[in-house]
Design a protein around this nucleic acid. Structure first.
Length: 230
DNA sequence: ACATTAAGTGATT
DNA sequence: AATCACTTAATGT
């Protein structure tokens, strides 16, 4: 049988289709981006991408080609210490948020210092970087949005910094658990003690013991691969 | 039933 | 609090 070769339909430049799904997602999760013309542009150039739980979205060293607007799920942002292969958990990105690191990477045209993985099944609107810059001068709300996400991310980082510097492991663990349950909108956390230990740069045994204490206090209950906050 | 992986324990530094 | 050297428990094949 012969299959007719499909010719590429030439696309009119001035009438790129808007993706209506993107418009409604922006309206729902990024209310700050209120200018209709901005929303339209996002709907034209944005691409919806979905990631399965555990999937690596961006690895170290790769060039950042798009800025993500997270609309569903949770994304884990991690930095690696070159020397001894250790990871530092920077933060989780949830719906309605964006990655400040990607802004700076794309504006400096730098390779990524970080790795992002889908903590949950996640969905993002990917904005190709060339627009990210254009919109900075074109749309005040976009500029504010970028600035504000820098600011809140900075605060977040300062918090984790002094958590590491001044807090004991048990407090850090508790904060970590709260953060994760919040990110998943669920008080059930699916994770091994080993993974938690890696995120907090602690040993597995230490985490196991601290979790046991929390269980005794009645704050959580433990099962294999599962922690339930009470 | 057996192998593999996760979690628990105690001793040592 | 880390590391080691186990043990025990849960799960996958």
């Amino acid at each position: 049988m012969s299959i007719p070769i499909k010719t590429v339909v030439p696309r009119q430049i001035d009438t790129i289709k808007m993706n209506p799904e993107i418009i409604s997602l922006v309206k729902e999760y990024f209310t700050e981006l209120s200018e209709p013309s901005l929303q339209e542009e996002i709907a034209k150039v944005g691409v919806i991408r979905e990631f399965k739980e555990g999937e690596i979205i961006m690895n170290f060293g790769s060039f950042v080609t798009a800025v993500p607007l997270v609309v569903k799920g949770s994304i884990k942002v991690v930095r690696e210490e070159e020397e001894d292969n250790k990871e530092v958990l920077l933060y989780f990105l949830n719906a309605g948020e964006t990655c400040s690191m990607s802004f700076s990477c794309c504006m400096m045209d730098k390779r990524s210092d970080i790795r992002t993985t889908a903590e949950d099944d996640s969905k993002i609107i990917a904005i190709p970087i060339k627009h990210v810059n254009d919109w900075m001068s074109k749309y005040p709300s976009w500029r504010n949005f970028v600035m504000r996400s820098y600011d809140s991310r900075m605060q977040e980082l300062v918090k984790t910094l002094d958590s590491i510097a001044f807090k004991k492991m048990d407090e850090r663990l508790w904060e970590y658990l709260l953060k994760r349950s919040k990110a998943h909108h669920s008080n059930i956390i699916h994770s091994t003690h080993q993974t938690i230990a890696n995120d907090l740069n602690a040993s597995r045994e230490a985490i196991s013991r601290l979790l046991k204490q929390l269980e005794k206090k009645g704050a959580i209950s433990l099962e294999r691969n599962k922690i339930v906050l009470l």
